[in-house]
């Protein structure tokens, strides 16, 4: 594994730990944002010509 990939994976692990340590309401707000983003993507996909 290259040092760059190793460092990237370590940073990802640290980010996950930081997210896990957030208070629950803060995590819920992040989930709500993810959900809203998912809906926007769905809407955009539906607007594409030829989409079902």
């Amino acid at each position: 594994m290259s040092p760059l990939l190793q460092r990237t994976l370590e940073e990802k692990t640290l980010r996950r730990k930081r997210l896990m340590a957030l208070p629950y309401p803060e995590k819920v707000r992040i989930v709500e944002k993810m959900r809203a983003a998912g809906r926007e993507i769905q809407t955009a996909v539906r607007r594409q010509p030829g989409s079902l």
Partner: peptide
Amino acid sequence: GAMGATFYLEPISTY
């Protein structure tokens, strides 16, 4: 479910 798990883990995308 996912929102229960989110209490202990990182935020999980769920509907």
